[in-house]
Design a protein around this nucleic acid. Structure first.
Lengths: 210, 210, 210, 210
DNA sequence: TCATAAGCGAGACGGTACGTCTGGTCTTGCC
DNA sequence: GGCAAGACCAGACGTACCGTCTCGCTTATGA
């Protein structure tokens, strides 16, 4: 997404890059996405505006990379050795599918409620709704890798006979992930651990009488 | 949301109001939400800027009312007598829950893919993600009334013994509605009638072996 | 010169206009022409940039009008009744041509050495050297009207037989005016009352033996 | 004016110097002084910006040296042996002062009308009006040496009794040189051979009846 | 003869100002 | 008093250059 035709990127200032990420995330957190401006980011980062325009094509683009970087850094910290970006954690596989899914979904609830994560994530998600290019990048780089972890766990559950063989795992995971996502994105209702548990139970056994 | 303290509203120009709605929807459709400006709407509607600021507080606010008006008009056309805004249709109740849900969900798929609907809806949804006040209004006035139709149908199904009594209908409906919403909002995957059907089946019977 | 296509100028803010003139002249006096910026003028005048760009096409244009206004105001003050702009004073006509010319030329020397006049005048003159359009306006509106006063006095002297009839007054005046102008503009040598007197004497009687 | 403390100047690239002069003169001729930029000169000369900043302190400085170099080269071509910079030619001395002055003044008219000379000369003159340091250098290096040629010729005329002994030659020459200079600089009126002749005649014999 | 230091092309950097665009407010007639 | 029109103050936009600062590369001694 970045407009990097000019760069051999050798001479790029690492210090500026980090300062810009930090400033962008801080400003979005403080005044929101709409009132975050490139000028503001540049001023806060102690950087010329051109240094931003040289490497990124838009405010959304800067924030996206800042957010990806934030995730990458968090991952590095969490597992110094296991730093494959974008696939930081796997869904646990204890053999108890319901428990494993609930555990991860509860962690997701906690993350979605963490203000430090929430504001930039919301800003990116909103921009992605309206800006197809950025939306697809958001999905490809952030969302889908997370969802694939569920796909893996569900496949393993199919092998163990805990999920029907004719079920498509990529669709199945949406039964409990999407409701959470929609409640968060659109604020249709509060999200809690109990709610997460309920979603998993309903998704596994359906709502019709057995 | 509108800032109507000034107005006596008696003298308000109906012609201007309709022209503003039309201009706002047209511009959003043509150039997208971000590049739609109050100035542009005013110019296109042949209206002074102040006439917009007098009755609405923001670009999002204008678009929201324009969109609600669009829905209301569509409803009036569809059913001259049954014009209760926001609750135009009920989910059909033929006794076959799966068929009824699939039928409505398929209609929703069609609507989400209609470009005339898609662009302003997407714009409003995006703004709502980031702007809590507008988001809540969007949910209250547009989304939740639609969802309550499913709640009614699910309650009726519970009465008929087709849905377990201990199931919360408000959560249950999210199993098939939210995945569709998320695929549309975030473009994680395409939405089709077949997909809608699958969601209903999975939601009713779960993904675990019976 | 101003780019006034938009304006009916009825609604133009007189207060802003005067504030802009004052700010422009003050800034040019304080930091020089090159370091005077439109942004600076706007800020100092407490005015939006667009209000400047709406009525003037360039920094030079603003300064030119500010300078003309300054002259007009000075003239109004000097002679409340005799406020014909651009032709404020006539060269005196006492019958003694040499004395009359020396008197006016000495006054010009004083004006050229007045810092309040010098800095903006120099800035305009410099811009006019390089910018033909502005240069011509400068000459037409400021310089030539002044020079025509000398033409009138020289014609009167011709009638009185104090200047040869075959002499072109428009050229003749340059013999004493242009040397002063060049010394001032290009700083080739200092300008004094004595120098002014010498120029008049040389011009009247030539440098060749009589 | 150049900031040469760093340099040992032995290692200086002659090729770059010439390329910079050529690029500067070409650009000033093509787009004018204001729109000539150091970056543009560097790019056109195929030179790094630092190579310019290393040897010159400003745009005006570069152009001044380029212009001096242009004059020096012209002089070298005109007289391979007589290449004293800045004092290439003397005013001819045929004994007929009027004829000698007219001849040189006519040549000056031709030079001032030569576009190749005019644009950079105008740019330098304009800068000099506003920038005292450069203005003085311009006068010292270019203008005054030329004027001194007239001083010499007028002294010789005084010796021959063709100019009054009490006349200051440095002032006298301005009677015919400055009008020409002002007409050129400020475009107050056209300059022609006939005009030059008239100036000489008026200056020699005055405008008063003899 | 070869390291070594200067000049060099290139271009990223922190800045400033440009001229444009829009936001939201205010003012002026018209209806 | 609502309205169309549009001037006003404010300030962000994305661009162009400023003058400084590395970066490797070439080149020309001088140890």
């Amino acid at each position: 997404m970045a407009r990097k035709p000019t760069s051999d990127s050798t001479r790029r200032s690492e210090k500026s890059r980090r300062a810009i990420y930090a400033a962008a995330l801080a400003l979005v957190g403080e005044v929101g996405y709409a009132r975050t401006t490139i000028e503001g980011v540049a001023a806060r980062a102690g950087v010329g505006k051109q240094t931003i325009y040289r490497w990124w094509s838009s405010k959304a683009d800067v924030l996206m990379e800042a957010f990806l970087d934030l995730g990458a850094q968090a991952a590095e910290q969490a597992a110094g050795q296991d730093a494959r970006p974008g696939a930081e954690y796997a869904v646990p596989d204890t053999g108890d599918l319901a428990a494993d899914l609930k555990s991860v979904l509860r962690a997701t609830v906690d993350e979605l409620l963490d203000p430090q994560f929430e504001v930039p994530a919301r800003a990116l998600a909103a921009e992605g709704v309206v800006n197809e290019q950025l939306g697809r990048e958001f999905v490809t780089k952030l969302l889908e890798p997370q969802l694939q972890l569920y796909v893996q766990r569900l496949r393993s559950a199919q092998d163990a006979g805990h999920v029907r063989a004719d079920v498509d795992p990529r669709i199945a995971l949406e039964l409990f992930v999407s409701p959470l996502a929609q409640r968060w994105l659109q604020r249709t209702a509060p999200i809690t651990h109990a709610y997460a548990d309920t979603l998993v139970d309903y998704a596994l056994h359906g709502i019709a009488p057995r």
